[in-house]
Computed example of a mutant assay.
Amino acid sequence: MWLKLNLDGIALSLRIRQYKKVKVDDWDSTWCKTDFSFIAEPWLKYIKEDDEVLLAREVDDLVEALEKLLADQLSTPTEFTCIEPDFIFELTPKEDLRSNPRFVYIRPGCEIADIDLEWKVFFWHEGLTGNYLSVALARPDIECLLTYLKVVTGRLSEKDEQVQTLIAKGILY
């Protein structure tokens, strides 16, 4: 199954295969096969197929981190890094902007900034480079990513109503 999101003009496609639940003491033994692309014609076309960029344990840990983010259980920004340096996920919890000295004025009704996730995708060219693409996921995108990861890990089935809704919208296919 694939996840497809439109991230402000950048089309993300992601498929994680060969996930297998692992024991805590065997966390580094099982790699998932991952296909992904970030495309915004004509300027961006970054595609990887059959890459081992995520451990099964990292998929589990990312599910847990996203659940905490969505449930407002994170109090500070959190960086989620992977063993392979292809992805970094920066999770930002809700923030009361009235207590942030960077803001002089906040319009009434806009005092709380909602959660977000910055997904950094590092580029390879004859090895890892210092260049990366940064895409922002707002709450609805984070919810879709979490639902997809739960399908990958078997926590949700394709018959689940939430999954069926995303399939009907073309977000999961």
Rank of each mutant, 00 (worst) to 15 (best):
D51S: 14
N131C: 09
L69K: 07
L55H: 02
T147H: 02
P140C: 01
L156C: 03
P77T: 01
D26P: 14
S75H: 13
I88M: 11
A138Q: 14
C110Y: 03
T81Y: 02
D114A: 10
E90G: 01
L66M: 08
W31K: 02
E49H: 12
I47W: 07
T129P: 02
P108L: 13
D25L: 08
A136I: 06
W27V: 10
D96Q: 05
V121T: 13
E41V: 08
W27Y: 12
D26C: 12
Q73H: 06
V63H: 09
C82R: 13
F36L: 08
S134N: 07
T153G: 03
L54W: 08
W124F: 04
T76H: 06
E95D: 11
F80K: 06
I115M: 13
R139C: 02
K68S: 12
Q18A: 14
K21V: 10
D141E: 15
E64V: 05
V53K: 06
L62F: 07
V135R: 07
K23C: 06
A168G: 10
D72Q: 06
E161L: 12
A11R: 05
L55A: 14
L55V: 02
P77W: 00
S37A: 12
W119H: 05
C110A: 07
I142N: 15
A113R: 14
A65V: 09
K23I: 03
V135Q: 08
I88N: 12
E84K: 05
R17G: 14
L146R: 00
F122M: 08
A168V: 03
Q18R: 14
T153Y: 05
A65R: 11
V24M: 07
D28W: 04
E58P: 00
N100H: 05
M1K: 01
Y105S: 00
G9D: 01
S99R: 09
P101F: 08
E41I: 06
K48D: 13
D72L: 04
K45L: 04
G109H: 04
L3A: 10
T153P: 02
V59M: 08
E64T: 07
G127M: 03
K48T: 03
